[in-house]
Amino acid sequence: MYATSYHRASSVGEAVNLRASHDEGRYVSGGMTLIATMKQRLAAPSDLIDLRHIADLRGISVEGRSVRIGAATPHADVAGSAALRTVCPALCHLAGLIGDPHVRNMGTIGGSVANNDPAADYPSAVLALNATVVTDRREIAADDFFLGMFDTALEEAEMITAFRFEAPEKAGYAKFPNPASRYAITGVFVAKTAGGARVAVTGAGSSGVFRVPEMEAALLSSWAPESVANVSVDPAQLMSDLHATAEYRANLVRVMAKRAVQASL
């Protein structure tokens, strides 16, 4: 890892100010991706602004069907939240599949979504749940947030503080992990929301997480595994790598979508 300077922020305001005053700085939350990337010398932030000690950023609240998850809430807390489980167990299930128990104790939902790794699990949930991304300065709709691989609508120094969404009527997540990294080769989150059916795919798209309108339309008319089982996705928009060809991923999108719907029932 290259040399860096560490700053521990105790409030959102302090963190944003610290970040704004260090052009080459980065926020670090759980650090499960960032520190690993820095170790490989693939990232070299001059300064790290630690968000883990900002109490306001942690925690899950459920009021009726309205859910708010603080950005610095670790995956383990999301996976284990009894309140969340009553309204959206699919999200608990997804969080319990990220990394491993130790990674889940440190890694946070905000860090994962801000990083927008094309193989990360959370972006699919945020997009499928039509969540609102709350930042230190504004609110961003999920559909406007994810711009491409590792690219989001976040501005320089902008920090995610929370996610808000209305619990869906039904939701499910199915993931096919990479045999080596255990990241998603393909993960599909399906949600039956007030605004209609939403299907979001992670791990497969060559520009990151994406929705599948054909599947959504099919699910709108009938929320059943068979509805998506034969909806094909064009391999041309999918990634191809050592572990999975685009054709294989296209197949997995179908299969995982079917299983996600099955899991939602």
Partner: peptide, 19 residues
């Protein structure tokens, strides 16, 4: 695995070499 054109090793960590 190697990239046959460049000779670069493609599986140089547990991210790509499945233990």
């Amino acid at each position: 695995r190697y990239d046959e054109a460049t000779g670069q090793i493609l599986t140089a960590s547990y991210m790509d070499y499945a233990m």
